[in-house]
Design a protein around this nucleic acid. Sequence first.
RNA 1: GCGGGAUUAGUAUAAUGGUAGUACGUGUGCUUCCCAAGCACGAGGCACGAGUUCGAUUCUCGUAUCCCGCACCA
Length: 446
Amino acid sequence: MSNKSVDLERLVSLAKRRGFVFPASEIYGGVAGVYDYGPYGSQLANNLRDAWWNYYVVSRPNIYGLDSAILQHPKLWEASGHIAGFTDPMVEDTKNHKRYRADHMAGLDSNNLEELKAALKDKKSPDGNPLSEPRIFNMMLKTYLGSVEDDTSISYLRPETAGGIYVNYENVRETMRAKIPFGIGQIGKAFRNEISPRDFLFRKRELEQCELQYFVKPENEKEEYENLRQISWDFVAKTIGLDEKKLTWHEHEADERAHYAAAAHDIYYEFPFGAKELAGVHDRTDFDLKSHMEGSGKDLSYFDQEKNERFVPFVMESSIGLDRLFLAVLTDAYHEEEVNGDKRVVLKLKPELAPVQVAVLPLSKDEKLSPLAFKVYEKLKDKFACEYDQTQSIGRRYRRQDEIGTPYCVTVDFDSLEDDSVTIRERDSMEQKRVKISELIESISL
RNA sequence: GCGGGAUUAGUAUAAUGGUAGUACGUGUGCUUCCCAAGCACGAGGCACGAGUUCGAUUCUCGUAUCCCGCACCA
């Protein structure tokens, strides 16, 4: 049976029912575009985070980790281009995407979109192209640093994690004695006031990004870019193990690239609501470091000792949304199967990613079986993510574990009292093998 | 943000201007119980606010959230 028919509602329902994802502040009616990860969801997210960190940072000698603050100097976002015009009513040239102040063009001192819309009805851009409708642009979440709320204390929750990497570029290079090429990896929350959050975890207002910024010599731009594309593909396809048939490259045309990017390729995943961006690889050139050199007045150029020359490194970026990865993993794993005339819902998660790796189950709740089963649980719990469950029938408990993707169930039965053996039941095949309790840990391979 | 639809227990749903059933799930107990078995008992619900009304889960309005299109996603 395939999982092609998996629709978003089923995933949302399972996620809620089994403690993966809850709507934020649900008892107050929820908050659009914000979700909380429940007991199993937070564990799965942790596992995905660890997988990224190990793959991109820990296992690479010239990649360094960073955890920069969500709050940074407001000037960072000016230099990066994020602040420009964001709290103003803007119109956009629909052809070349140049932006203009809607109030200036309309000759009105107004933030009223209806008034502006009427006044701009027949106007063209300076290049003679049609204009988009006026909108207030303020994607960043504003806050005040310090307890006095005035214009001088305005700050922003970061709209992306990359900025924190650039402002620490020199600190990391210096303290790690890093030579180009090297990279800085970071995982963290970012915030965007999305106009319309949609599609469950796909477009959230509070999201988590995993980003690698890789600093290279300008002349190696193309080669490093292609290399990073391959690394990024291998992460989602091999390390995470998403179905490669659902993954595709999508190259940005010039007019859909961000202001900083010379080249951009996204990895699309076939979500229940269509093929959408899961990850991105961008060639950001020297835009960012140069912008921050200008903004801060500090020299961020690199001195190459061998060639005795100085240059501003180019940045190759690999970024992936942790929430999107979570949703892709859930989508990929979700299967409905027919077993003995009943429907079985099973999450075929990679064992190392599963929130529970081993469930220990006494065949029945019993004054002799339960203590033995609990001893088995205690033996395993420091080695694997374990759960102990003795409530209701054994078949029911297998199904429970199937639904949260537990790869192995260890069942303690009445024979166990005599032969010191237990059975290991495998999730996907539902096959069982009997092993000695003393050899149990070695018998479970993740 | 615009237009449309929806919102009843944890999930999926039924009915109703006189405060709600069902299924699955869930809790306790019985059953040496290997793939959601059975039996008994139990907990649990009309998204929020206002209006109309003797009385609103039901009608009206507003809000929130979700879904579908469009736009947006720098």
